[in-house]
Design a protein around this nucleic acid. Structure first.
Lengths: 120, 120
DNA sequence: TACTTATTTGGCTATATTGCCAAATAAGTA
DNA sequence: TACTTATTTGGCAATATAGCCAAATAAGTA
């Protein structure tokens, strides 16, 4: 894997990581309904307001939300609609936990040994 | 937020977390092409084989992959096709980094103060 | 200016994740 | 049985993440 590939996968992981927390998923879902201030999101998730603020900066850093200041209030907005698609994807997977049928699929031909260390 | 809601969001986060690592994203993408043994995935990501094995157990634990043993070789398989949708979602977001136009949207009416602590 | 409201930042501790090595396990082969 | 191959597990150190409190910042109001 070259450095360019690595960069790409790191960017992907940054976005996934941003969504990899219960509070942040909740907030993204809520922001799908419209802009919300930090206070409103704080009531939603129930953590300390400083914690919520830090979660929001993670989402912002990943490019998922943006903020607009009005007086002393900061409104957070969903930047990319498709962030909501993630939640649909996840819930599909959760549903598949019970309904999914496993397809057994072997490689067509036996492969040569691929893991052995070279002899010295 | 009640305990049931919390449970749901934790399950969602478990799946997101499983995908929140460059190597694991790479492996999911590769498994989209067909079953692969641990060795093949190890060559793909370039980490120690024990590290790769642990990454795979994270994916398995989240219900994203399953494994089938053939002799000494373990073939990993994508369990849910829609795990690939995530990667499409992420790449859409990455593309939006440059092309996305911000829609400024304020709440229609000014809201009452919502954050102040009660006076004692 | 002093106070209030809303939010962010710094700092700290607790916890989780990552990645390597070494050892263990599992299954096939000489 | 001893050896080889493929993979998993245990253990450990390094790093990252989370969440709280206290303090700082920003903007409005009396």
């Amino acid at each position: 894997m070259n450095a360019l590939m690595s960069k790409k996968h790191q960017t992907r992981a940054l976005i996934m990581k941003a969504l990899a927390h219960p509070s942040r998923i909740m907030m993204i879902e809520e922001l799908g309904k419209g802009p919300r201030c930090v206070c409103e999101l704080q009531r939603l998730v129930g953590s300390d307001i400083s914690t919520v603020s830090k979660h929001l900066s993670v989402l912002k850093n990943a490019g998922l939300v943006y903020d607009i200041k009005q007086g002393t209030t900061v409104y957070y907005n969903l930047k990319v609609e498709c962030a909501l698609d993630f939640i649909v994807c996840v819930d599909k997977i959760i549903n598949s936990y019970t309904t999914n049928t496993v397809h057994i699929s072997f490689p067509e031909v036996p492969r040569a040994k691929c893991c052995a260390k070279l002899k010295q």
